[in-house]
Simulated assay, not measured.
Amino acid sequence: MYLTVDINEAGYAGNTNVLKDIRFSVGPGELVGLIGPNGAGKSSTIKSILGILKHVDGKVEVGDYAYIPERPIFYDRLTLWEHIDFLLSTLDVPEEEFKLEAKRLLEFFQLSQRIHHYPESFSKGMQQKVMLILAFLKKPDLYIIDEPFMGLDPNAVKKLLQLIADEKKRGAGILMSTHVLDTAEKICDRFVLISNGKLVLQGKLDEVQRDSGLREGSLFDCFDLLTERDSHAG
């Protein structure tokens, strides 16, 4: 497994626990969708995996990963190509192959003409593309992707899905947090549904349908029913 999450409780400063009994894993060549309502604990789960959430009772085992945040983060006054050069300096990879792949991805996302510009001046969609390029250049065992479709136009979404499919074939594992459930239903191998800070269910679509009682239901319908049921139970 590239990621194993076994959290009894987790939270922030003080005695406020926002997560309880969160247990799941991501293996090679597997795309796992992390889904749940706003405020359900998805971001806190990702923070616990990244080691940002310090108050964790439990264990998280994570391999070599690349993290793609919902809000792009860049170094001040570094151009797009300087970001790529900096990434290269942190990796033990052949420089020529790396730069060829960088140029391929820049062309793929139509950013070749912007390599000497500052990413902080880019549109949200262009910034998201830069984050994707930097992550896919790293070629990690595991991708942790937070709301990847935000700000991307349909053409860019299609290209992202193509890259995800290619990385799955390479054997990479992917944990993807998303609200875009119709797309998640089509591309994810399994789902982890979190509501009110706890794991409601996990499994393949047919298991989600079975547990929700909606044998022919869409992921959206199952999600809606299960989160409503959990809110009443809470």
Rank of each mutant, 00 (worst) to 15 (best):
M1Y: 04
M1T: 10
L3F: 01
I7W: 01
I7D: 02
E9G: 12
Y12D: 04
A13G: 14
N15R: 13
N15D: 14
N15M: 12
N17K: 14
D21Q: 10
I22M: 04
I22S: 07
I22Y: 00
R23S: 15
F24G: 10
S25A: 12
V26A: 03
G29C: 02
E30L: 07
E30Y: 03
I35H: 07
G36W: 00
P37K: 09
P37R: 09
G39L: 06
G41E: 02
K42L: 03
S43D: 01
T45R: 02
I46V: 07
S48G: 06
S48F: 01
I49T: 07
L50I: 06
K54N: 11
V56N: 04
G58N: 05
G58E: 03
E61C: 13
I68Y: 00
E70R: 06
E70S: 07
E70W: 00
I73V: 15
Y75F: 09
D76R: 14
R77P: 15
W81Y: 12
W81C: 11
W81G: 12
E82K: 11
E82G: 10
F86V: 12
L88E: 14
L88F: 13
L91Y: 02
D92Q: 15
V93S: 09
V93E: 06
E96N: 13
E97T: 13
E101T: 11
E101H: 10
A102N: 05
A102D: 02
A102K: 06
E107V: 13
F109L: 05
F109C: 06
Q110N: 15
L111W: 00
I115E: 09
H117Q: 15
P119Y: 01
S121I: 14
F122Q: 04
F122V: 03
S123M: 02
K124M: 04
G125Y: 00
G125M: 00
M126C: 03
Q127V: 02
K129N: 01
K129M: 00
L132D: 01
I133Q: 02
K138N: 08
K138R: 10
K139C: 09
D141Y: 07
D141L: 09
Y143G: 03
I144R: 01
I145G: 00
D146R: 03
D146M: 03
F149I: 09
M150R: 15
L152W: 00
D153H: 00
K159D: 07
K159E: 06
Q162C: 14
Q162I: 14
L163K: 08
R170A: 08
R170F: 02
G171F: 01
G173F: 00
H179E: 05
H179W: 01
V180R: 11
V180F: 08
V180M: 12
D182H: 09
D182L: 07
D182T: 10
A184L: 07
I187C: 05
I187G: 06
R190I: 11
I194W: 01
S195R: 12
K198H: 14
K198M: 13
K198Y: 11
L199E: 03
L199Q: 06
Q202R: 13
Q202T: 13
Q202L: 11
G203M: 08
K204Q: 11
K204N: 11
D206V: 15
D206P: 15
R210V: 13
S212Y: 02
S212Q: 06
S212T: 09
G213K: 07
R215I: 14
E216K: 15
F223E: 08
F223W: 07
D224T: 15
L225Q: 12
E228P: 13
E228Q: 13
R229W: 05
D230V: 08
D230K: 10
D230Q: 10
A233I: 15
